[in-house]
C-alpha cells in the first residue's frame, strides 16, 4: 500500500546540548509508531531547497513523538537549530533500513560525535527487548560530550573526561565472552567506524556500521548518496545508495577507502 510518507510535523521540545548541538522533539505518530533504530528522517531546513537527514535519536511510541539531534554544520542545520517550539516542518520518514539485532544476545553500541543519537535509540530499544547492552562513546573533548548516561564507557581524545583515547581504548576494556552471539553496532565518523569494524572483526564479532554521505532525496531515487561496497565486478566495488540499501551496512561489505 502506497503512503506519501511525508508529514507536516510540529516541533514540541528543544534542548541545547552544547554550543552547537541541540535535541529536538517532534510530534508525529506515523513515524513514531513505525521507525526502528538506525532509520532516519529527512526534515526541511527553513529556506534551504533540500531536506536534511537525521538519525532518529529517541521515540515515545505512546505519545507519538520522536527526537533527533542536530549539530550545526552549515546553513541548513543552523536554520533547523533556530526553529522555535511550535514550528511546523515537512518531514519524510522513516527512511533507510535500520539495525537488525536478530540472532545476538549481546550488543556493543559504539558512537562518536552525532553518531550517539542513533545509538541512543538503539540503546532504548535493546533494553526493552532484553538484550545485554554495552555502550561506548567517544568525543573530542569534555565540551563535546552529549547524551552520556551512567554505565556508559566514555572516551575523549583530549583525555579531559573518561578514558583518554579513541573508542578503541574504551572497547579494549571489555571482556568478550561469546563473540559469536555478540553484535557490534557503530555510528560515527568514517575513521572511527573503520577502526571499530577492524576491532570487531579481529575478535570474531559481526559489526554493523551506519554510513553517512551527502544526501538529496533520502528516498532512493537520485543516486547522490552512494557508498562503496565490495563487488566482484570489474571495478572491484559497487556504488549503492546510503539512503536505501543503508544507512546500516555489515562492515565486511563496505569497501573502505
Amino acid at each position: 500500500m502506497a503512503t506519501r510518507k511525508e508529514y507536516r510535523i510540529k516541533l514540541i521540545s528543544k534542548e541545547l546540548l552544547n554550543a552547537d548541538t541541540c535535541y529536538l522533539g517532534f510530534d508525529c505518530p506515523e513515524i513514531a509508531s513505525s521507525c526502528i533504530p538506525g532509520q532516519f528522517v529527512n526534515i526541511s531546513a527553513g529556506t534551504m531547497f533540500l531536506k536534511r537527514p537525521f538519525g532518529i535519536a529517541s521515540v515515545d511510541r505512546e505519545k507519538g513523538t520522536f527526537n533527533i539531534g542536530v549539530k550545526v554544520v552549515g546553513k541548513g542545520t543552523e536554520q533547523i537549530k533556530d526553529f522555535e517550539v511550535g514550528t511546523e516542518v515537512d518531514c519524510l520518514g522513516p527512511l533507510g533500513n535500520g539495525f537488525d539485532f536478530e540472532g545476538c544476545d549481546n550488543v556493543i553500541l559504539t558512537g562518536g560525535g552525532t553518531g550517539v543519537f542513533p545509538i541512543n535509540f538503539a540503546y532504548e530499544t535493546l533494553t526493552v527487548i532484553g538484550k545485554n547492552v554495552t555502550v561506548c562513546e567517544g568525543f573530542r573533548d569534555a565540551r563535546q560530550v552529549i547524551l552520556n548516561k551512567d554505565g556508559y564507557i566514555l572516551t575523549t581524545d583530549a583525555g579531559d573526561m573518561g578514558i583518554k583515547g579513541t573508542v578503541i581504548a574504551g572497547l579494549d576494556t571489555l571482556t568478550i565472552e561469546d563473540p559469536a552471539k555478540t553484535l557490534v553496532c557503530c555510528v560515527g565518523p568514517i575513521p572511527m567506524m573503520k577502526a571499530v569494524s577492524a576491532w570487531a572483526e579481529e575478535k570474531g564479532m559481526k559489526c554493523l556500521v551506519s554510513m553517512e554521505q551527502r544526501m538529496a532525496c533520502g528516498a532512493g531515487i537520485c543516486l547522490c548518496c552512494t557508498v562503496k561496497v565490495k563487488d566482484d565486478g570489474p571495478d572491484g566495488y559497487k556504488n549503492v545508495r546510503c539512503c536505501k540499501e543503508g544507512p546500516v551496512f555489515d562492515s565486511r561489505e563496505v569497501a573502505w577507502s
Binding site: 541548513g76 537520485c222 548518496c225
Partner: peptide
C-alpha cells in the same frame, strides 16, 4: 558505477548533481 565522492551540492533554489 558513476562518479566517486560527493555528488550533490545545494544551491539557491536547486542543486548541483554529478551522479
Amino acid at each position: 558505477n558513476g562518479n566517486p565522492g560527493v555528488r550533490v551540492a545545494e544551491c539557491a533554489s536547486g542543486m548541483l548533481n554529478s551522479v
